[in-house]
Design a protein around this nucleic acid. Structure first.
Length: 546
DNA sequence: GCGATCAGCT
DNA sequence: CACAGCTGATCGC
């Protein structure tokens, strides 16, 4: 969750992705994408009232974000105050103090962020330097070097500060699987499932409002089908996605939602209530795309066996925040989440902070610091040389060099070459940014982890009662296998998956990224094949070798 | 009754 | 722990 307080030091009269508290006084608002954790205060009555009395305060975002936002009636009042901007099209904005008439000009450029439909980064250029606010972003390596507006001629612009959504700044998350890897894995799984019979259906358990469209499009394309969703309203101006979603429940791939959809699933029902026409029970697998794998437990459960592919364990060329930062080399980095590595480095403070006093800075700008330590921040901003030896909590008083957060390697030849030769910018994103955004890959969802659970329960009415609704067992060869009662299933499950005692209490103990072994593509492929075919997959197959 | 915050859950 | 939410309880207005 974003904990960014909403304002940047260089341009404190504008607010981004936060609309409450001090942000109520902003002269301009920016919304990077349409996820709730970046919309705090956006429907507040106070803000609404302020807008009604203002002639100059506006909300700037991408066309797609505008579309998605206004789709929700709670935000409909923004309609007359939104100014959608094209991607990669520098726009001058006057920041006016309506009381005094004082004015400041800033040029903003929206850059594709690759996080969800409409998501952008904001590049601000003005008298206080160039600053980049990333929001949530997920850019394939190399994309930043192709962004024209981050370059001036053949070199990277001087970036004073980067305001970073730093969930993945944490080195534990450096290696996130590429979109292609995730997609091909899911595709294979889906394909092997739905081909078995018309009653084999897939439920894509998508939590967030937006960000899975790339998955829908690819699955729809590959299997020549549409994905069932609750409503098409938000996509009405987005033909590329619209053709791959449907409200017709007669499809084998569902992404529909229900407040109690987990219960539905465990009762072998789809959230939409869809059942097969002839009364044959559906065979459902649930695929949970999320940025990271996380374990699940069900209360009052007797047996839970899940096979989880920890996509986040796999190496990826897709997203390397380290490369992003080392390419842009900002003077300051303001992550909105304090990475663990920071504290490690702080504990080594003399080594880190004494080295190069005038070097670039890392500064905490999370909510608690940003809201309450104004004076300290001002002091720190004007005195970058000050590198003290404070306590770990005293973050802003002793910024270590940003390079030290990573292995201090020099740029590789290829990086240097990228740096000096900006290429033409992202194809397809330089033109009109009407909501036909999905023709391009910039709007891909996050990397996926996948929790796969084959539901075996109550496929036949006579043993409905004996099957616990929360018994989830990987058991794909349903058709060829005699289905026993839940006790039998448990034994089968135990045969298939080796569980230690601790694993039983918390599902699998999935390793974190750094210790993870990186599977080869053929191993991945093998894994998916096994999962889809129902072959035994031992937990240890996923474990590291430490 | 509404909004904000928090715990709990997925 | 994390994602990006949702629900329900509690509290203040």
């Amino acid at each position: 969750m974003s904990s960014f307080a909403g304002r940047m030091k260089e341009y404190p009269t504008i607010s981004l992705d936060r609309f409450d508290r001090e942000n109520l006084h902003a002269r301009a608002y920016f919304l990077s994408h349409c996820h709730k954790d970046h919309m705090k205060g956006l429907k507040g009555p106070l803000l609404k009232r302020k807008l009604q009395f203002s002639r100059t305060v506006r909300l700037y975002c991408s066309f797609v974000t505008k579309e998605l936002l206004l789709n929700n009636p709670k935000y409909a009042f923004w309609e007359e105050y939104i100014v959608p901007l094209e991607l990669e099209s520098p726009t001058q904005i006057s920041l006016v103090d309506e009381a005094s008439g004082e004015k400041e000009e800033v040029v903003v450029t929206l850059l594709p962020a690759g996080h969800c439909p409409g998501s952008v980064m904001f590049l601000f250029e003005g008298s206080h330097g160039n600053v980049l606010y990333t929001g949530d972003f997920r850019l394939p390596v190399g994309d930043v070097s192709r962004m024209e507006h981050l370059h001036s001629g053949s070199r990277v612009k001087d970036i004073q500060s980067i305001y970073l959504d730093s969930t993945f700044y944490d080195p534990r998350f450096y290696q996130i699987p590429s979109r292609e890897v995730c997609l091909s894995g899911i595709s294979e799984l889906v394909g092997k499932w739905i081909i078995q019979s018309p009653h084999h259906v897939v439920w894509l358990n998508c939590k967030a409002a937006y960000g899975y469209e790339y998955l829908f499009i690819n699955l729809g394309e590959e299997f020549n089908t549409q994905i069932h969703v609750n409503t098409l309203a938000m996509f009405k101006k987005m033909p590329e996605i619209l053709s791959y979603v449907t409200t017709n429940r007669r499809t084998q791939i569902h992404a529909c939602r229900h407040p109690k959809d987990e219960e539905f699933f465990q009762g072998n029902r789809l959230p939409c209530g869809c059942t097969a026409a002839d009364g044959t029970p559906l065979r459902i697998i649930s695929i949970k795309p999320s940025t990271m794998w996380f374990g699940e437990r069900t209360k009052k459960t007797s047996v839970i066996i899940k096979t989880s592919c920890c996509f986040c364990c796999y190496a990826s060329p897709d997203f390397q925040i380290k490369d992003f930062l080392s390419y842009l080399q900002p003077v300051n980095i303001y992550p909105s989440v304090i990475p663990i590595v920071y504290f490690i480095l702080i504990s080594l403070a003399p080594t880190v902070t004494d080295a190069q006093p005038a070097a670039r800075n890392y500064v905490d700008c999370t909510e608690s610091n940003g809201e309450e330590d104004e004076e300290e921040e001002e002091e720190q901003q004007g005195d970058e040389e000050k590198v003290g030896a404070g306590q770990p909590e005293d973050i802003s008083s002793q910024p270590p060099r940003w390079e030290d957060f990573f292995t201090t390697e020099t740029l590789t030849d290829s990086q240097n070459s990228l740096r000096s030769q900006p290429q033409s910018c992202c194809s397809g994103m330089t033109g009109s940014q009407t909501p036909d955004l999905f023709s391009d890959e910039e709007t891909a969802p996050d990397g996926f982890s996948l929790t796969l659970s084959g539901s075996l329960s109550n496929h036949s009415s006579q043993n409905m009662d004996s099957c616990l609704p929360d018994t989830l067992i990987i058991q794909p060869e349903l058709d060829g296998q005699k289905q026993g009662d839940s006790e039998t299933q448990r034994e089968e499950g135990d045969d298939r998956i080796t569980l230690s005692e601790s694993q039983q209490s918390s599902d699998f103990d999935i390793p974190c990224t750094p210790e993870s072994k990186v599977p080869r593509p053929d191993e991945l492929s093998q894994l998916y094949r096994k999962l889809a075919a129902g072959e035994a997959v031992r937990a240890l197959d996923y474990r590291t070798e430490h």
